[in-house]
Design a binder for these strands. Sequence first.
DNA 1: CTATTATATGATCAACGTTCAATAAGACCT
DNA 2: AGGTCTTATTGAACGTTGATCATATAATAG
Lengths: 202, 202
Amino acid sequence: MARRYDHSRDQLLEMALDASRTLVLENGVRALTVRKVAGEMGYAVGTIYNLFANLDDLILHVNGATLDALYDTLSDVPLTADADKDVRALSAAYIDFTITHLNLWNALFEHSLPAGEDLPDWYHEKITRLLKLVETALAPIFNGQNPTELEKAARVLWSSLHGICSLATVNKLDIVTAAPALDLTDSLITNYLLGLSQTVSK
Amino acid sequence: MARRYDHSRDQLLEMALDASRTLVLENGVRALTVRKVAGEMGYAVGTIYNLFANLDDLILHVNGATLDALYDTLSDVPLTADADKDVRALSAAYIDFTITHLNLWNALFEHSLPAGEDLPDWYHEKITRLLKLVETALAPIFNGQNPTELEKAARVLWSSLHGICSLATVNKLDIVTAAPALDLTDSLITNYLLGLSQTVSK
DNA sequence: CTATTATATGATCAACGTTCAATAAGACCT
DNA sequence: AGGTCTTATTGAACGTTGATCATATAATAG
């Protein structure tokens, strides 16, 4: 097997992902080219296509790695069974992640698959895992009842969080008076949880 | 002035935008190429660069037109000074818009400017205008007090709405049990407004 | 040592964004 | 009318991109 340098397939995958993540982190998804990745690895273009189906597939794996990193970050947040406090802590960690990994995080949403293609199962699983974290933090509010509503609330919080950070970071929220993301998520959490505690307890 | 066909600059702009919007609507931003737009118009490639600085600028104007269309849609929603009802109506209209203009709406967020470039003022103004609509619907809750909080609440609602629709449409929310966007926004509005009414009235 | 198999290569292709000298057609003046 | 100026329009040309695949090469098996 013509390995010019002794790298196993797994090593090659790791090298390609590392190079790609660095490129995206430093210059955004737009800067990610097959040629640059190959060059960085010291391999030829064709080798990349040996590892990934195409550029979309490569980006998908970059995004997968970002979801993993996000999971690692969020699962390090200690939970106290105080829903309000815990959700706030998760939110803070999330916001911090979007700042320190800005371009990688943006890539999660700037990239979309060609029409007709769906996200693979392994990708969905990484998302489910993240949602589960929010569910766990949120659970105390529901007293073990109404798991469907718990699921829904977790999704609402998760996507709202995403929305706020998304529009805030690109300044598409037109934040003139410098109300940073944290200010908005605080309002979201405070009031949404307050509302939840009302509708649940009845 | 060598106009091969008698089209004023404004007409050319409109033709280019129309062609671009159609391309995006039918096949997503990825399908938008300068060559296709020019071909559709019956003009040469160079003419496009006569109208727009570059492809990014063209997409920015496509997105501007989408924001205008969204504004038209939302400002047609009749308001009743019942915040809960009105916000819900706006939200429903918003969701409907994301469905009927899916690819155009996605383009708003899939596209980002090259590093270092900022969104122009006219673009920000289109966003402000939309936020003002939400503020108006939300105003009754605040009894004319605390305009800062009103502004904040509008932004929270707006970006959360965006987040939910964004993750729902690409199925990045991992919605297995078919909880569509409307279900989530309902939960968001119900509970967030309920929470707001508590924190405000005290 | 040979045959087989797996891997790595990079020239090659079509398509893209962008540029710009050349061109053509209006306007303007005499 | 004729000549000049100005300006819109052109499209060939350039560099770069994603993707392909016949070819070359190295490890393994017989």
